[in-house]
């Protein structure tokens, strides 16, 4: 089952690459650099999926005390942090040639960066607790607090950035509904969500084996 998922993911990623390089048109002003969007946007969106799953799994764990739910939360945290990290990195690589800077404290960039450090802390907490049951409990609480914090982060950063300084160059071009761009993006999005699910399935299985080996 997991193996099939792996092959499916590989096929989707390959199709995504073909779409991004073959089907999607060369962006007029930015050139080929713009193609990084087909990795950048799916990475960030898939990480959002990961964090939502993490929050739900945390809640399920607190109600049911099912170690499987904790495994899903744990794995989602790891994959989510990795995806956000890669998303920020690819965004930087895209930003340098188009905006002329690796980083700017724009509202969206800032929100994502806060998300990154918040869930990095989550992984850090996991790493410092030896007792798996306690780690699961504490991390579930942190996972819920973090999830509820996301809307607060969103609004505060948005107001912080937009009340005093209008978003300037932050509209990378060519996004407006053209299907030649939309389809490659959607295929890649599917591919990265599959990749996330595959990683979580693998990681959760490993975590379970680990728990059994210790017990």
């Amino acid at each position: 089952m997991v193996k099939t998922l792996g092959w499916l993911t590989a096929a989707a990623l390959a199709a995504g690459l073909v779409m991004a390089f073959g089907v999607a048109p060369r962006e007029v002003t930015q050139g080929n650099v713009q193609r990084i969007m087909y990795v950048h946007v799916p990475l960030i969106l898939a990480s959002y999926v990961a964090f939502v799953v993490l929050a739900v799994a945390s809640l399920v764990y607190l109600v049911r005390r099912d170690p499987a739910a904790d495994g899903v939360a744990h794995a989602s945290g790891e994959v989510g942090v990795m995806f956000v990290g890669l998303g920020i990195a690819t965004g930087s690589i895209w930003g340098k040639p188009t905006w002329g800077t690796w980083w700017t404290w724009d509202a969206r960039l800032t929100s994502v960066a806060i998300l990154f450090v918040m869930y990095l802390g989550y992984l850090l907490l996991r790493g410092t607790i030896d007792d798996p049951e306690r780690a699961a409990r504490y991390c579930a609480v942190l996972g819920i607090v973090a999830a509820l914090d996301i809307p607060l982060v969103h609004f505060s950063v948005y107001w912080w950035r937009t009340l005093h300084q209008p978003p300037s160059l932050m509209k990378p071009g060519g996004f407006t509904g053209s299907s030649s761009i939309l389809w490659p993006l959607l295929v890649n999005l599917l591919a990265f969500i599959l990749l996330y699910v595959y990683f979580v399935a693998r990681r959760a299985r490993l975590l379970r084996a680990q728990a059994e080996a210790i017990a």
Partner: peptide, 21 residues
């Protein structure tokens, strides 16, 4: 928890960014 003096600010600060802003 081990290293609690270190872990406490590392957990608290990111969550408190909205309040800080």
């Amino acid at each position: 928890v081990r290293a609690r003096e270190l872990l406490f600010p590392v957990l608290l600060l990111p969550v408190q960014i909205p309040v800080l802003l």
